[in-house]
Measured scan of single mutants.
Amino acid sequence: GMDVRRLKVNELREELQRRGLDTRGLKAELAERLQAALSGPSSG
């Protein structure tokens, strides 16, 4: 899988935006949010 901790802030935001998620917050928050999205149930 993707290691969200290795991504830069702008990369985290890009991935979040692609999934329609909130791109605001600290890098740690963005990484946590993206990780949750990646490990969560895949819809679609």
Rank of each mutant, 00 (worst) to 15 (best):
R33Y: 03
S43Y: 12
E29K: 06
E15L: 11
R24F: 06
G40A: 14
L26D: 15
Q35P: 00
A31P: 00
E14D: 10
V9G: 03
L21K: 04
R33G: 00
R13N: 01
L34S: 00
D3P: 06
T23Y: 07
L26T: 15
P41K: 11
R18Y: 04
S42N: 13
R19A: 03
S43A: 13
G1F: 11
R19M: 09
E29T: 08
A37M: 05
E14V: 11
L7A: 03
R13M: 07
E14A: 15
R5V: 06
V4A: 06
S43G: 12
R5L: 09
A28Q: 10
R6Q: 09
A28D: 10
L12T: 00
K8I: 03
V4S: 04
A31C: 14
G25W: 02
L30V: 01
E15D: 01
Q17Y: 14
R6S: 10
G1S: 13
G40N: 13
K27Y: 13
V9W: 10
L12S: 00
K8V: 04
M2S: 06
N10M: 08
A31E: 11
R19T: 01
Q17I: 06
R18V: 05
E11P: 01
A28F: 09
G44Y: 14
A36W: 08
R24V: 08
K27I: 09
G20K: 04
E11G: 04
T23G: 03
Q17D: 06
E32M: 13
R5Q: 08
G20S: 04
L38A: 03
S43H: 12
A36D: 06
G1N: 12
R5M: 10
A37F: 14
D3Y: 09
D3Q: 09
E29G: 03
A37N: 05
R19D: 02
L30I: 03
L38W: 05
N10D: 10
L30H: 01
R33I: 02
L34E: 01
D3I: 10
L26R: 15
A36T: 08
E32I: 11
E11K: 08
K8L: 07
S42Y: 08
R24M: 09
L38V: 06
L21F: 04
A28I: 07
L16M: 02
A36N: 10
R24D: 08
D3K: 11
G44K: 11
S39H: 11
S43Q: 13
L38N: 03
D22R: 07
S42R: 10
A36I: 09
D22Y: 04
L26M: 10
N10G: 09
Q17S: 13
A31D: 02
E14F: 14
Q35S: 09
E14L: 14
L34I: 02
A36H: 09
E14G: 07
L38Q: 04
S42V: 11
G20L: 03
S43V: 12
G25N: 02
S39E: 09
E29L: 06
P41A: 14
A28V: 08
R33W: 03
V4R: 04
P41V: 13
V9L: 15
K8P: 05
L34H: 00
R18D: 03
G1K: 13
K27L: 10
A31N: 03
A37L: 05
L12M: 05
A31H: 05
E29S: 05
E15F: 07
R5A: 10
N10Q: 14
E32W: 11
S43R: 09
A36M: 10
E15I: 07
R18M: 06
P41Y: 13
L21G: 02
D3N: 13
S42H: 11
R33P: 00
Q35H: 09
V4Y: 07
N10Y: 11
E11Y: 05
L12R: 00
L21P: 01
A28C: 10
R33A: 03
S42G: 13
G40R: 13
V9F: 13
A28L: 07
R24G: 09
S39W: 10
R18A: 06
L16V: 00
R24I: 07
A31I: 15
R18P: 01
R33H: 01
R24Q: 11
E32Q: 14
G20I: 01
G44N: 12
E29P: 02
S43D: 12
L38M: 09
T23A: 06
R19P: 02
M2Y: 12
D22I: 06
L7P: 01
L16Y: 02
Q17V: 06
R19H: 05
E15Q: 09
L38E: 03
Q17L: 13
A28Y: 10
S39F: 11
G25R: 03
L7C: 07
S39P: 05
T23K: 05
R6Y: 08
L30D: 00
S39M: 13
S43W: 12
L16K: 01
L38P: 01
G44A: 12
P41I: 13
E11T: 05
E32S: 11
Q17T: 07
G20Q: 04
R13S: 02
K8C: 07
D22S: 14
R13D: 01
G25E: 02
D3H: 09
N10C: 15
L34Q: 01
L34D: 00
G25Y: 00
M2T: 07
E29N: 05
A36F: 08
G1P: 14
K8A: 08
G25H: 01
N10F: 10
R5F: 11
E14S: 12
A31Y: 09
R33E: 01
V9I: 15
R13T: 04
L7S: 01
A37E: 05
G20P: 00
L12K: 00
S43E: 12
N10A: 13
L7G: 01
G1W: 11
A37H: 09
G25K: 03
G40E: 09
E32F: 10
L38F: 06
A37W: 13
G44W: 14
A28N: 10
K27M: 09
Q17M: 13
R6E: 07
E32D: 10
P41T: 14
E11D: 06
M2E: 05
D22V: 06
V4M: 06
R13K: 08
R24W: 07
L16G: 00
V4H: 04
L12V: 02
